[in-house]
């Protein structure tokens, strides 16, 4: 299908180990259309992180094909894949991965530096994204001055700043308490409502329940791929549009 945002066919990936090649992925095929919200689950060593690295153009498969937004990633040179990471993809990591010496604004605008965008526009777009995640007034603070949940929101703002089609989130709530996790998932839901495609790795069922499609990995193979049943227990699932936690006048605490 030409309309797929992500299409992988017969993906294999093997790592060389002292005990011989270890197959991390075995014949994985998957298609994701624009606007989907996919959760990927699976135990450690099931190949989900390897899969994510390949989707993120950080790693190359041993065999198989990967089409991202219509282009065959295999045929692209390193600069072109860097461009894909810069413009088409947005990464959100478990450890937030903000640069500690930079202000939030500079962190968020960093991808724009590599797109060759001028200082004034970088600053404006970073501010816009920080406003979107409710942290606009901390634009000049350092990451160490804000909480973990707030840092992850900044990381999401950074992933969004170049208006990507696809967000790749690798255990984005892994370092957060359950309340903050709900908050971050609320952000992802809101983004998905805007039409941004999201692929998210998690091993928490609560988190996976926010997604509309669930893919399970086991021993390098997809063992489950089905739409997620609508959630019933989660409180925010009740409304059609997911309100962001800081919307509705609730004041943010000052940076600690």
């Amino acid at each position: 299908m030409g309309t797929d945002l992500v299409r992988v066919e017969g993906l294999h990936k093997a790592y060389d180990t002292p005990a011989g090649p270890f197959p991390a992925l075995k014949d994985v095929s998957l298609s994701i259309r624009p606007g989907e919200f996919v959760a990927i689950m699976g135990p450690s060593g099931s190949g989900k992180s390897t899969f994510m690295n390949i989707l993120g153009c950080l790693d190359r498969p041993s065999a198989g094909r990967y089409y991202l937004a219509g282009s065959n990633v295999e045929e692209l040179d390193p600069d072109a894949t860097a461009r894909l990471r810069n413009r088409t993809l947005g990464f959100v990591f478990q450890g937030f991965n903000l640069l500690p010496r930079m202000s939030l604004s500079d962190n968020v605008s960093l991808p724009l530096v590599y797109s060759g965008i001028g200082h004034a526009e970088r600053r404006a777009r970073a501010q816009e994204m920080l406003d979107k995640v409710g942290l606009g007034r901390y634009a000049d603070s350092l990451p160490s001055r804000i909480s973990g949940g707030q840092q992850q929101r900044v990381a999401i703002a950074r992933a969004l700043v170049n208006r990507p089609q696809l967000i790749l989130a690798d255990e984005p709530t892994g370092n957060l308490d359950s309340h903050t996790s709900e908050e971050i998932m609320g952000v992802f839901n809101a983004l998905n409502d805007e039409g941004i495609t999201i692929i998210l790795i998690t091993h928490e069922n609560d988190v996976a329940a926010h997604a509309k499609r669930l893919v399970r990995f086991l021993d390098g193979e997809i063992v489950h791929d089905a739409p997620n049943p609508p959630r019933e227990s989660a409180p925010s699932a009740a409304s059609e549009r997911h309100p962001l936690p800081w919307e509705g006048g609730r004041g943010e605490g000052p940076p600690c």
Partner: peptide, 16 residues
Amino acid sequence: TREIGIRMAIGARERD
């Protein structure tokens, strides 16, 4: 090293 990894993930080319 980690910073370099982050920069690469968000689109820095080798030459950057």
